[in-house]
Design a protein around this nucleic acid. Structure first.
Lengths: 158, 158
DNA sequence: CATTTTTTGTTGACAGGTCAAGTAAGCTGC
DNA sequence: GCAGCTTACTTGACCTGTCAACAAAAAATG
């Protein structure tokens, strides 16, 4: 009974092949691993660092809370990762006027050139991923994700 | 500039709204959190434990390697989780004929009744999730996931 | 059969993510 | 102007997922 609905990279005969959350989790993990592999190899940074690099690069004098808002990462995680990025001279921290709690974050030259060097590659990857899907499929996909996002908030299923 | 493409549970104005891997990651994390919440509240078990319970319940005398194959979880993780489940009297371990390396795994009465009690709830949840999507959307979604799964294997993007 | 190879499972180590307590600075309202 | 609340960030604790080293048993090989 029930063999191979969808067999891509799925253990043969797994009963989970058509389980949505399971498929999502596996694909997501794989995409994540791909990005990490790439970033480690090409830039020696983590996916989190890359995301933060992007955000800091695109915002003027970002503060930690901006990164948290934009990335939806945990603020503790951002704090720690930031410390590392400052230590690695990718990011600059400087005092902000009138607020001693926060500091303004900017990319160093090193951070900026890393961003400039890696961005084309990540863009290529993105095109590679979305390129395998038709425009309509992409629309449906995003729409479905939005709906699942909402459904994921429920705590009861009467 | 660039406000609200898709605004569902996305920080207002986030530049990532239409970034596929980002959306996937966030939705996946949310679905995961939902399942964990549910299982913790209703059964005091983790998502991993639930998946293993399902597999052990559906296989006759499963061995650890079976669980690894079916679930695609790490064998170390399975080994540790199993230890806990045995300690919690959810799973029974007994010797197997002709192979002293592995042991046969079966649900205890407690494990079986837990499974029986929680399964309807998890089925409801699944219906709740897939129910928000039209059949065609689901098909496209699975198809898109398959394609992304394949694309996630690439390491270069010429 | 004895030796090598493979399979099976356990364990240790470590990065990543999540939660929550703690600290310091700024703000509010009397 | 100071008592109390809020905001911004840091830190600690813990849990998961992943990788690699390991030991024991079984299978393969010659």
């Amino acid at each position: 009974m029930s063999k191979s609905f969808s067999t891509v990279q799925d253990p043969a005969g797994s009963q989970f092949s058509r389980n949505l959350t399971y498929r999502l989790a596996r694909v997501q993990a794989k995409l994540n691993a791909q990005a990490s592999r790439l970033l480690t190899r090409e830039a020696g940074i983590s996916l989190t660092q890359w995301r933060m690099l992007l955000i800091i690069g695109s915002l003027k004098n970002a503060r930690l809370s901006d990164i948290v808002r934009e990335s939806a990462l945990d603020k503790g995680q951002v704090s720690r990762t930031l410390k590392k990025m400052v230590a690695d001279a990718l990011v600059n921290r400087e005092a902000i006027e009138n607020d001693q709690r926060a500091s303004g974050l900017t990319l160093t030259d090193k951070g900026q050139s890393l961003l400039t060097r890696i961005l084309p590659l990540m863009t290529k990857r993105r095109e590679h991923l979305t390129g395998s899907l038709a425009a309509i499929e992409l629309d449906v996909l995003f729409d479905a994700l939005d709906k699942l996002d909402i459904s994921a908030e429920a705590d009861e299923f009467p």
